[in-house]
Simulated scan of single mutants.
Amino acid sequence: MKFVDEAVITIQSGDGGPGCTSFRRERFIERGGPDGGDGGDGGHVILKVDPGKRTLYDLHRQKMHRAQNGAQGMGRQKHGKNGNPCYINLPAGTLVRDADTDQTIVDLTREGDEYIIAEGGKGGRGNKRFATSTNRAPRYSQPGLPGVERKLKLELRLLADVGIVGLPNAGKSTLIAAMSAARPKIGAYPFTTLTPTLGMVTPPFGEPFAVADIPGLIKGAHQGTGLGIKFLKHIERTGILIHLIDAGAIDPQEPLADFTVVNQELTLYSRSLADKTRIIVLNKIDLAGTDHRVASFCRAVPDLEVHTISAAAGQGVDKLIQLLASRLQKE
């Protein structure tokens, strides 16, 4: 299934059913009183978090969602049937905005969350309701109230504890595959990862945690260059960021060049991203000639904690998992 993290849909709650104008008609009763029943209420449109949903693919295809109208009231004071609600199932982490005003309506983050996004119209009252001491035979009833139509913008933001960021080909997909059961596409060329990947990691202690592999950033990503801001939103909810750097690509003359590019893009996109707890990890240390490159990087950032791994060889990965579990417990 294609990964879709944005969709624009139109919703319509049900109209209320009209009330009934009716009079009692039975043998031996010449002038029966009014007995028109009320119309049924229109169905609500309800947003619901479905644990089985992972993307907005279905909603990207189906643009219109309607609840059922209420039924008309009937004689003998029979109430019209209420309209059935329309449930829209969404993955956890879906942010719902008004498409016309861009105002945030609700952020659905927990399994089982429900939100009535559009109430159905109330059913009209039957003529029985309008009988008074001075008007014992009202010949009118109410129409039902119309439902509500809204245009919504849905935006999925992954719910992960840890996000992995870095330039293309830094080894993010290899690392998430080494840490979890996730099997992202891996290749030795930029932008192998075209969609975010979510993997569950089970540490030797503490709770399991989710790790998100975000497609590689490049200079100008905050303005939409490369894969741009399309996937940066998926790490806004994370507690910790792993800043992964290809140790083999470090230039001893400018050891912080790649590190600075990613930092600047995160800061320009969102100050809160730049302020998140971050763990610097140098990858691919199993490659020949990386020792002096790693040393030059560490000398350039003497006040920062730097960890070294080889995701492909599994070197240092278990230690990194333990570190993440410990940091998440503290967070």
Rank of each mutant, 00 (worst) to 15 (best):
M1D: 15
D5L: 07
T10L: 11
P18T: 01
C20H: 05
I29R: 14
R31I: 03
G36N: 09
G37C: 10
G37M: 12
G39W: 06
D41Q: 14
H44P: 10
L47M: 09
K53V: 09
R54F: 11
Y57E: 15
Y57P: 05
M64A: 06
N69V: 07
N69G: 12
A71T: 07
K81H: 08
K81A: 13
N82G: 11
Y87S: 03
I88R: 08
D98F: 14
T104Q: 15
R110I: 11
G112I: 04
E119F: 14
R139P: 02
S141F: 08
P146V: 02
V148D: 04
K153H: 15
L154M: 13
A160I: 03
D161A: 06
V162G: 00
V165D: 00
N169L: 06
G171L: 05
A188D: 13
A188G: 10
T192I: 09
F205A: 10
A210C: 10
K219F: 04
G220A: 09
L232P: 01
H234E: 01
H234D: 02
I235Y: 01
E236A: 06
T238K: 03
G239D: 14
I240Q: 00
I242R: 00
G248F: 02
D258E: 13
E265W: 05
L268C: 04
V281E: 00
L287V: 14
A288T: 11
V294I: 13
I309N: 05
A313C: 14
K330T: 10
